[in-house]
Design a protein around this nucleic acid. Structure first.
Lengths: 168, 168
DNA sequence: ATAAACTTTCAATATATTTTGAAAGTTTAA
DNA sequence: TTAAACTTTCAAAATATATTGAAAGTTTAT
């Protein structure tokens, strides 16, 4: 396979996977493009490579910076801004995990915790089922959350080493 | 907090979380509703509880059955079909992981594997960056995939026990 | 202060996804 | 076989999300 074809397939595939996980296709493609770029790219270059508008590049690049996956690079003596991606996959995974935890899991955890305090007669089947289910869910999501904390503190080899050793 | 209010907040929160992870809000809400229902529910009841159309209930309940999270229950002497959710959270997590792996991760893995075979001069910076990045990504996603396999074989306490012991 | 070289904003537009509901299909009982 | 009681389908409508691009804003050099 030729480089150009492979690059396009990578951009397509990564964009599709992203949408399946609730991340915007274009944001993922901008990220993918920066990931495989040997040098930082300008807004101009991203526009051309992905055939998207200037405004779109601007929005997505800023969101990637919010996620701490991309940095702005200023080249001495140039007005233009360049962008480069964090290249270490383990680092990327940790930053994504950290953000999703903060933005999506923690708020849910707060709500679940509230919901364990529902008032009502535990002899009522509905109430019993609700409190049982919410209790278990709360417990589970808390454990998941703690596991993510563990992962965030771990180093890649240690993490995968331990996971794989768990069973065999 | 009263039961009705708590139930509604659970349905809302769970639906929102789902959309953030690429799962349709309504499917998640149907699932949540069945999760906290002490008895299997009919299409009729789901329609009323969530204020959605018959067709919508049908589609979502079928997709939940595709995911193996919901079962159809036939009550002896009744025409109507009833639906009940798997209630064990660890079982739910495993089934979701299994499906996302099969539908979303495995196809990506195939593509990444293809892309490691890009032809071209490794002295070309672009080619080198591409093959390096794809190689690392391929390796990483493979390890993740293997870890999911490990989890699928594990039992909940063992899994969380091991994860938590990893660091402290 | 001005203009050139940029970046950012956001209302309008386009695209993608979800939902509806009526019609078609299916199953069961008599 | 017919009709009642259901489920399924799918084109059209509604809604949600992403994109454009021109105008406004900012920064820098002179």
């Amino acid at each position: 396979m030729k480089y150009e074809e492979a690059k396009n397939q990578f951009l397509q595939t990564w964009g599709k996977l992203a949408t399946e996980w609730g991340i915007s296709r274009t944001m993922a493609q901008v990220h993918a493009l920066l990931l495989i770029a040997p040098e930082p790219l300008s807004a101009e270059e991203i526009m051309e490579e992905l055939n998207i508008s200037r405004g779109n590049v601007n929005m997505n690049v800023r969101e990637l910076m919010d996620w701490d996956l991309v940095n702005k690079i200023l080249v001495q003596g140039e007005r233009k801004e360049y962008f480069e991606a964090e290249k270490d996959i383990w680092e990327i995974a940790k930053r994504v995990a950290k953000e999703r935890k903060r933005r999506e899991i923690e708020p849910v955890l707060k709500v679940l915790d509230q919901l364990t305090k529902v008032e009502g007669d535990r002899k009522d089947k509905k109430i019993k089922e609700f409190t049982d289910r919410i209790g278990e869910l709360n417990n589970f999501v808390n454990k998941m959350d703690k596991s993510v904390d563990t992962m965030l503190k771990a180093d890649e080899n240690w993490f995968f080493g331990s996971i794989i050793k768990m069973i065999r």
